[in-house]
Design a protein around this nucleic acid. Structure first.
Lengths: 148, 148
DNA sequence: TCTTGACTTCAAGTTAACTTTAAGGTGTAT
DNA sequence: ATACACCTTAAAGTTAACTTGAAGTCAAGA
């Protein structure tokens, strides 16, 4: 199957201008052109774009993603650095998940805080509780919020 | 304890200019001033700043965080909308974690892909494997990369 | 052949969240 | 009293990742 920029953008759920921008920035060296100069995307290019999307979700910049794509175009000599990069991003994502899990715990504490405020008609009630009065799963969150 | 903008910034690990910017944007209505016009941060303000940091980590914009802070300044009439907002952000963070876990699975597939390429001296080997040749935990990842 | 819609490039505009700069004021230590 | 580090504001600058606009080209259907 072959696709125009608009068709591929639709398949990916992004704007065609985004694909043109990525191409301009050198992220899509694998995309070919028709005789008339129109971009022709192949199914293999879709896979590439999904990898770019994946790397973007890890927080990588377009500049760094470009380096990865360019490496891949060099062929098999760059297998090792590509592997290292993937492993590095994997660790980065694990760290992001851990941070979001901390954030979630803070939000759960705040949820309890406002539930308790709602039941009692005032935020004074949860705010003035001593550490041993609040549910034990929130004690460390509260301590962290107060300044380690 | 009382702190200047520089001291509080250091305690939070951010730039003083960031705190001044937040103040200018209306995110810090709780911060008071000395007779000479200098910002005076209290320990309770540190807690507020940690909450702002938490909301920022959920992906909320400064504009929306400001609305939350402003609501809190209104007092106990706004307990319910504040609770709703916290619950909404909690769900948003859960979705973000789920998405990062998908991303992680894709990276693990790519790690296997390049490990296999490295062992065989060529990306041809993992690339040309049929679905049933690759480790079964990666089959659905591969299918997704190819286009659902 | 003509129309039409989608394609092309290049340049300029947008947005969020800061950061920097300039010119000047504050407050504490000697 | 003077120095010095740190504070103040306002305005302008930065960055990444797009998005939009203008002017023109390509390709498929009637």
């Amino acid at each position: 199957m072959l696709y125009t920029v608009g068709e591929m953008a639709k398949r990916l759920g992004i704007a065609p201008s985004t694909l043109r921008y990525y191409d301009k920035e050198g992220l899509l060296p694998f995309v070919e052109r028709s005789g008339g100069g129109i971009r022709v995307f192949k199914d293999a290019d879709y896979e590439w774009l999904k990898i770019i999307e994946c790397l973007k979700k890890t927080g990588m910049s377009l500049k760094d993603i470009k380096e990865f794509v360019v490496m891949a175009m060099q062929g098999d000599e760059t297998i090792e650095p590509r592997l290292s990069l993937i492993v590095k991003q994997k660790e980065a994502v694990k760290a992001q998940i851990a941070e979001l899990e901390e954030t979630l715990r803070t939000l759960e504490f705040k949820e309890w805080y406002y539930e308790t405020a709602k039941e009692n008609g005032s935020t004074d009630v949860p705010r003035n509780m001593t550490l041993d009065e609040l549910p034990e799963q929130f004690r460390d969150v509260k301590v962290r919020l107060r300044g380690e």
